[in-house]
Nucleic acid binder design. Structure first.
Length: 405
DNA sequence: CGTCCACAGGAATGACGGGCGG
DNA sequence: CCGCCCGTCATTCCTGTGGACG
């Protein structure tokens, strides 16, 4: 322990400011996004002069700088408004994190000082409180709704419709909306009225190229790392890795940060390629064990079924087989199994989490089903679930329907 | 070329825990 | 405390369907 502490205190440190690499860090420079920055700023600026800004729709894949740019501009706007005594307020809500219309509205309300219990009220009531407060305070609110697509996918566009129309019923105060989405096709799900209102202005963030990501990394590394603590090739590797995905700068930054942490723990004084390679593995493992650990019981059983099937030599189990195994596991554990319909949904959720690969196939005469393959190293699943009480109770249990073959 | 399998996945509905206003 | 409404999870019932088999 002494050694670890000393490593942090004395000697050469790797990091100067590790936070500059964290995903929620908002830098003050945006290499290769100057154009977008200007556009967003130009669109919200009228608010300072007491005019409503246009609604804006921002689209781009993950890690293309949408969120950072918007949050940066909102921050600047708010500061400017304070300095000029303009009644402009900004607000940022991540719809996927919020999860429901209710909580999105609660988040919007919070920026106006409307506090709302976390459940219990009718959604319409929260909306009307929000509207009331906006009117009363005569505020010009710029609200960023991040990952709106996930909200619309689950709850439809009713809330967006109401929000885009709110100005028509306001005598005082105005609302402008910045919608941020990863999914461009999501526009197809929108009511045309909502779409035209929401995308008065549109802005697309293209994926970064590898050289662009390298510039970003160097820019951040200047403040994040101590001089000489970072090898050029390591930066190049992170950039190449992330560009290979889809130009995801966030992934590149993550990679670089974790690589730095690995190097630090090793006690080396430089971050090099090998640390990036280790970081890559570690990030994936962390992600998997986090989801695995926090999964509901039945999802664990479904995943475990898939694990057992692949261990028994089944390359890609179909829903029905998996369900059979799952039911046996439940019986063995004394748990009431869920219906196949529900399990089918759970499989889809596991697919979304990237733990499993499920795709619908038609076996012709033999029906139409999903083929489910484990998409995580099975050793890791076994390792994480070694300590899980429910799964542990099933250790060594081989379901009958699998032992036949 | 039609049938028919084995599900997919949408819609309606219900149980449940939680918070509200009165 | 009550009656009401909420979101979440799950069930039930349902219609839809790609393509191998006969």
């Amino acid at each position: 322990m002494e050694k670890v502490f000393e490593g942090f205190l004395g000697g050469r440190k790797i990091f100067a400011n590790r936070d500059a690499l964290r995903p929620d860090f908002i830098p003050d420079r945006f290499p290769h996004r100057e154009e977008q920055l200007r556009r967003v700023a130009g669109i919200v600026a009228p608010v300072l002069a007491g005019q409503r800004g246009s609604n804006l729709f921002v689209y781009g894949q993950t890690g293309t700088g949408k969120t950072a740019i918007v949050r940066f501009v909102l921050g600047q706007l708010e500061a400017k408004a304070r300095a000029k005594y303009a009644n402009a307020i900004t607000c940022y809500v991540n719809c996927r994190v919020a999860g429901t219309e209710y909580r999105v509205l609660a988040g919007l309300g919070k920026s106006l000082g409307v506090s709302v219990p976390f459940t219990g009220l009718a959604t319409a009531e929260v909306l009307s409180r929000f509207r009331g407060s906006l009117e009363e305070q005569r505020s010009f609110l710029v609200a960023a709704l991040d990952e709106v697509d996930s909200l619309v996918k689950i709850h439809g566009d009713v809330l967006l419709y109401q929000l885009t129309r709110i100005n028509e019923t306001l005598k005082e105060g105005r609302l402008s909306i910045i919608g941020i989405s990863n999914d461009l096709r999501f526009k197809e799900r929108l009511d045309p009225r909502v779409l035209s209102s929401l995308s008065e202005e549109e802005l697309v963030f293209k994926p970064y190229t590898a050289p662009e990501i390298r510039d970003i990394l160097y820019d951040r590394a200047k403040s994040a790392f101590n001089a000489g603590a970072l090898e050029d090739s390591a930066v190049g590797l992170c950039a190449a890795e992330a560009a290979g995905e889809h130009g995801d700068a966030r992934r590149a930054l993550d990679l670089l940060r974790v690589a730095g942490e690995v190097a630090e723990r090793e006690g080396s004084d430089k971050v090099s390629d090998i640390h990036v390679r280790i970081a890559e593995k570690k990030i994936e493992e962390d992600r998997v064990s986090t989801v695995l650990g926090s999964m509901p019981l039945h999802s664990k059983f479904v995943l475990w079924s898939s694990y057992l099937a692949s261990n028994a030599g089944v390359d890609a189990a179909v829903t029905g087989d998996l369900y059979e195994v799952y039911v046996e596991l439940c019986k063995e554990s004394g748990v009431e199994p869920l219906t196949q319909r529900r399990v089918s949904s759970l499989i889809n959720e596991l697919d979304l989490l990237g733990l499993v690969n499920a795709r619908v196939v038609s076996l012709g005469r033999y029906g139409r089903t999903k083929k489910v393959k484990l998409s995580v190293a099975d050793g890791q699943i076994a390792r994480v679930y070694k300590d899980d009480p429910w799964i542990n109770a099933l250790a060594g249990y081989v379901p009958r329907c699998l032992s036949k073959t």
